[in-house]
Simulated scan of single mutants.
Amino acid sequence: MTKSNLEETPMINRRLFTAAMVASLPLAGTFGAPALATDELRDITFVQPSPSAINSFPVFVAIGEGFFEEEGLNVTVEAINGSGAVLQALSAGQAHFGRPGPGPLIAARARGVDAVHIYNVAARSNFGIAVQEGSDIQDVEGLRGKVIGTGTADGAEVGFARNVMTGAGMTAGEDYEFLTVGDGGPATAAFLNGEIDAYSASTADTAILNQRGMAVRDITPAEFGRFFGNGIATMGETIRNDRELVEAWSRAFARGHAFALDDANREAVLAHLAAGNPQEGEDKEFQSALFDAVRSKTIPTDDAEHLGWYPGAVWAEWQDALVAGGELPGPLEDLDAAWTNEFAEIGAAAVN
C-alpha cells in the first residue's frame, strides 16, 4: 500500500445490503456524534474488501437477526477493492467500520493512519499460496524465480504471501514476482494463460477456483496457520470520541458471529447471506460449502480467551515479517496501539 493510495479518496463501487427496518436519520457529519434516542436508528457504514457476504458473515447475520437494530444501529454494507481501499474509506471518514488485513493496517499506521483492529474475525489464517493441482511445484521453495498472482495490489493476501516467502529466505522483485490479476475468473485465466505459477488466495478464493474447474492445492507451510487474517477495524478517533458506538457494534457483531457458529441456526444464516449477496445464494450447495470453509477459519484457537481475541505475539510476528520483507522501514513505535481486545471482550460478554 503506497502513500498515494492512502491519500486518495476511494470510489465505493457497490452497495450490497441495507438494514432499514424503520426510518433512520442521516449521520451528523462526524463519527463522534452522540448516540440517538432509543426509538431512532443511527446510520452506520461498514466497508468490506470484496463483494462476498460469506466473508463478512457475522455482519449480515447480525443485520438479518436484528442484533444491530437492537443496538440502535442501521448498518449499510459497501464492497470496495481490497484492504487498502477499506483503510482509505475509514481514514477519509466514509465508513465507521471495515474489515482490513493486519499487514495493510500495520503499514497504514506506519504512514500515520490511526486505524485500530478491534475484533479478530479470521482467527486462523484464511490465506494460502495455491498452485494448480497438476503443477510440479510442491512447496514454496519451488516458487523461486516464479510469479505469484494476487487479487489486489495491496490487499491482505499480498502481505501474507510476502510473509511466507520471507520465511523461505526470498525477497519480492529479486527471487520471485507478484502480479495483480484479480480474483475468480481473471485468476483462472491467469493460470490458464501461464501468467502466474501460483496464487495467493483466501479460503473463499480457493473454493471459487475449484468450483469453476481450476483445481488448485495449497502449498503453504503449516506453521503459517497461526497468522490470523482480516478483522474488524475502526479509527482511533472513533474509539476515543464515540466509544458507545464501538461498544454497540461489538455486541451486535459478536452475537451475529456466535449465532452463525451454531449449526442449529444454519438455515437462517444462509438465508441472511443470500439476502446480502443474491449471486452467492444462487447455488445453494456451493454457498453452503463456502460458508463452512470460511466459518472454520473464524473459530478461535485453543489459547484464545473468547471470540474475536487477538494474540499479541502474532501481531509482533506480522510486524517482523513486514520489516523483513521491506514493507516497513522499521517497527512501529507502539505496535500495541494497532489492536485491542477490550471490545471483543465486551462482545463476548453480550454472547454469554
Score class of each variant (00 low, 15 high):
Arg243Thr: 14
Glu223Val: 10
Thr234Glu: 08
Ala172Glu: 09
Gly256Leu: 10
Ala207His: 12
Ile208Thr: 14
Val246Asn: 08
Asn277Trp: 12
Gly173His: 06
Gly276Glu: 03
Thr206Gln: 14
Gly184Val: 01
Leu261Arg: 08
Pro221Met: 00
Val158Tyr: 06
Glu195Ser: 12
Thr171Tyr: 01
Gly151Asn: 08
Gly194Trp: 07
Ala204Glu: 10
Ile219Ser: 04
Gly159Met: 02
Ala172Tyr: 01
Val216Pro: 09
Arg266Gly: 03
Arg243Tyr: 05
Asn241Ser: 12
Glu267His: 12
Thr152Ala: 05
Ala260Asp: 09
Asn193Gln: 15
Glu195Val: 08
Thr203His: 15
Ile239Leu: 14
Thr220Ser: 07
Ile148Ser: 02
Thr188Lys: 13
Asp205Gln: 13
Gly236Lys: 11
Ala233Thr: 14
Arg226Ser: 10
Gly167Ile: 03
Lys146Thr: 11
Asp263Cys: 02
Met214Val: 14
Ala268Asn: 13
Arg240Val: 00
Ile232Gln: 09
Glu223Tyr: 09
Ser250Ala: 11
Phe160His: 03
Ile208Val: 14
Glu223Ser: 13
Arg217Cys: 08
Phe228His: 15
Pro278Val: 10
Gly182Ser: 01
Thr188Val: 11
Ala190Leu: 05
Leu261Trp: 09
Asp262Lys: 12
Pro186Met: 10
Ile208Tyr: 11
Arg240Ile: 00
Pro278His: 12
Asp263Arg: 03
Gly182Val: 01
Gly185Leu: 11
Phe191Lys: 02
Thr166Tyr: 00
Ile208Gly: 03
Val246Arg: 08
Met235Pro: 11
Ala168His: 09
Phe224Tyr: 15
Gly173Ala: 07
